[in-house]
C-alpha cells in the first residue's frame, strides 16, 4: 500500500515538463506503481492540453505579440508563417511512418540480486557501482549539476547513517521496504525530505531505492531557482 505521494504542485510541474529529468523520472516511476497519481496526472494533462490548444489562448497571444500593422493581428500571423508552414508540411509528409520497436525490459544486478529497471531509466547512462558495507550505489549520469541521482541498494539489515539534507532528498522505493523514525515505507512510496528532516533509514529485508539529492552548497542558485515556482514543495 503506497502511502507517500508527490504534492500536486510537483505533479503540475511534471506535466508541464518543467522539472529536471531526475525528478521527472522519480514521479514517472512512482506513477507507474500508483494508480491514484496516474489518474491525477492523466486528468491534469488533459486539462493543460485543452487549455494550450484553445483558440482563446492563441488569440490572447496574437494580441500581445503583434506590433502595429495595417492588417489585423490574425492576418499578420498567418502571412508571416504560412509559407514556412506549407514547406514544412510538404517535407514532413515525405517521411514514412515510424516502425515501433517494443520496449526492452532492462535489469540491474547488485551482488547477485537482480532487479527490473524502471522504464523511465531505460536510456540513462549508469556509472560503476560503489560498495560501502551493506550499501551499493550506482549513479545515473544525468549531468544536472548539483543534482545527484542514484540507485541505492541496501542489503538486509543495512541502513544509512543518520543524516540531514540542507537541500532536498527524494527517495522512491522501487523494491523491498525500509523504516525510519517516522514510520515504514513500502514499494512505490515517494518520499521527499528537506532540511527539517533528520532520519536514519534501516532496511530489515533489504531494498532498492531511486534517490535524487542536491548539493546544499549551491542550493541558493541552480535548483532553488528552478523550484521557486513550486516553493511549497520544500516546506
Amino acid at each position: 500500500m503506497i502511502k507517500h505521494h508527490p504534492k500536486f504542485e510537483l505533479i503540475q510541474a511534471f506535466v508541464n515538463g518543467e522539472l529536471p529529468a531526475s525528478l521527472s523520472a522519480g514521479i514517472a516511476i512512482h506513477a507507474d506503481m500508483c494508480p491514484v497519481c496516474q489518474q491525477k496526472i492523466a486528468q491534469f494533462t488533459d486539462q493543460v492540453a485543452e487549455v494550450s490548444f484553445e483558440e482563446q489562448y492563441l488569440d490572447r497571444f496574437i494580441v500581445d505579440s503583434v506590433t502595429a500593422d495595417s492588417k489585423t493581428a490574425a492576418d499578420s500571423l498567418d502571412d508571416s508563417t504560412e509559407i514556412d508552414f506549407e514547406q514544412m508540411i510538404a517535407g514532413i509528409v515525405k517521411s514514412p511512418a515510424e516502425v515501433s520497436v517494443p520496449k526492452v525490459e532492462k535489469t540491474i544486478e547488485f551482488k547477485g540480486q537482480r532487479y527490473k529497471l524502471p522504464t523511465a531509466l531505460n536510456n540513462m547512462a549508469l556509472s560503476k557501482t560503489a560498495h560501502i558495507g551493506k550499501l551499493s550505489r550506482t549513479r545515473l549520469q544525468l549531468n544536472e549539476g548539483e543534482i545527484h541521482t542514484s540507485l541505492l541498494r541496501i542489503e538486509p539489515g543495512g541502513g544509512v547513517p543518520e543524516h540531514t539534507h540542507k537541500g532536498f532528498e527524494l527517495t522512491v522505493l522501487l523494491a523491498g521496504s525500509f523504516h525510519d523514525e517516522s514510520g515504514d515505507y513500502n514499494e512505490g512510496d515517494f518520499i521527499m525530505l528537506d532540511s527539517s528532516h533528520q532520519h536514519h533509514p534501516i532496511s530489515t529485508e533489504g531494498c532498492l531505492c531511486y534517490t535524487v539529492a542536491n548539493d546544499a552548497l549551491h542550493f541558493t542558485q541552480g535548483i532553488n531557482k528552478l523550484l521557486n515556482p513550486i516553493g511549497s514543495l520544500i516546506y
Partner: peptide, 27 residues
Amino acid sequence: MSNVWRKAHLFNQDKGAVTTWVYTVMR
C-alpha cells in the same frame, strides 16, 4: 508535427483526446 505524422498509429482514442496526445508529443 513530424512525430504526429510518423507516430499517428500510436494514438489510441480510448486513452484520451488528440489534444492530450499532441500535447504529450510537444512536451
